[in-house]
């Protein structure tokens, strides 16, 4: 080949990548990635069950309160503490309100709060924890100490202060919930990043000149997604019950509006007099939601990371 005495000139060489984004570019079209994900989820029966459950719960949250002709606030003392029957499918509560209607009305609030809180905790936690873990050293130290301070300050004090300065409402609850809710998530992400950072493939990527953000996005997060997703799905029920606590403190949605958390709370004493059904319906719906998010989360994670498939 060199016989022609061709001179190797500088022009003949081209920088492979002046842009790190090309560093690991796979030059085959990845046309079917999302389609592939979707195909894999569809194959996973449990994940599909979870998805169907989430969709049906959402639909029922929208139409449920209008199905049997009662309103969430109407009281009828003559019909209080009725067991489930043809008129009141899920029975009635201590003030004679229809539990079926209230439970679906509550689904709106609880599902919204649960999902929003999980989402915000997830985003803030990933960003904060990711930066802290990648930076390490001084930045990591200071960021973690700030998180510690925030976590150690009595949460109730902050809630009472919020209650004084803000209006009652959904967004206030979500703010109150995410005030410190992101911290465990951030610590989890940071721990994962610290561990992952020392793995060979990450170091290889860094050696190839990939920038921190890239490494974080393309290697760290996907490879630590499992525990993070577990944490996100767990935030949902925690948030649903936290809402009840906050409502009880006066921050939440005012009575007579219902949420699963407040309904479960109010019904707690009904166990003492044998009215288990008042607790059963909100509790079972919270569990179902939890189940749906869990299996769907698992399925999603598997689908995103083909390596885990068996």
């Amino acid at each position: 080949m060199m016989k022609n005495n061709e001179q190797l000139t500088k022009e003949m060489f081209q920088k492979v990548h002046d842009n790190f984004e090309h560093a690991e570019k796979i030059n085959r079209p990845s046309v079917s990635y999302w389609a592939d994900v979707w195909r894999r989820i569809k194959e996973n029966k449990l994940a599909m069950l979870g998805l169907i459950l989430i969709i049906s719960l959402s639909i029922l949250a929208i139409i449920g309160p209008y199905i049997n002709g009662y309103s969430y606030y109407e009281q009828n003392f003559m019909e209080k503490n009725l067991k489930p029957n043809a008129e009141h499918w899920f029975g009635t509560d201590q003030l004679g309100r229809d539990i079926f209607t209230r439970v679906w009305y509550g689904a709106r609030i609880s599902l919204f709060i649960g999902v929003m809180a999980a989402l915000i905790d997830f985003l803030v936690g990933i960003i904060y924890g990711g930066i802290s873990g990648m930076a390490s050293g001084r930045t990591d130290n200071i960021m973690m100490r700030i998180a510690e301070i925030l976590y150690a300050i009595p949460y109730l004090l902050m809630v009472i202060l919020l209650m004084v300065v803000m209006e009652q409402g959904l967004w206030t609850i979500i703010l109150a919930m995410t005030l410190t809710g992101w911290i465990p998530m951030a610590r989890l992400v940071r721990g994962q990043v610290l561990q992952m950072k020392e793995q060979e493939f990450v170091q290889a990527s860094e050696a190839l000149g990939a920038k921190t953000g890239w490494v974080l996005r393309k290697h760290m997060i996907p490879n630590t997604m499992g525990p993070i997703l577990v944490n996100v799905t767990l935030t949902v029920p925690t948030a649903i019950f936290a809402e009840a606590t906050l409502s009880f403190l006066g921050l939440g949605i005012p009575a007579p509006q219902a949420s699963w958390g407040t309904m479960a709370n109010d019904a707690l004493d009904s166990i003492l007099v044998g009215n288990f059904y008042q607790l059963f319906f909100p509790a079972i719906l919270i569990s179902l939601t939890m189940f749906a998010f869990n299996v769907f989360g698992d399925g999603l994670r598997d689908a995103l990371d083909p390596k885990l498939r068996k």
């Binding site: 767990l234 029920p237 019950f241 166990i271 569990s287 189940f291």
Partner: peptide
């Protein structure tokens, strides 16, 4: 035992553990 019965049993237990808060469990 991924996607076999021990996995499912563990999942159901976990879901109960997470979606039934301590005060309800305690009352029961």
């Amino acid at each position: 035992n991924r996607n076999r019965w021990p996995d499912y049993v563990s999942m159901v237990l976990s879901i109960i553990g997470i979606s039934v808060p301590s005060f309800i469990l305690a009352t029961f």
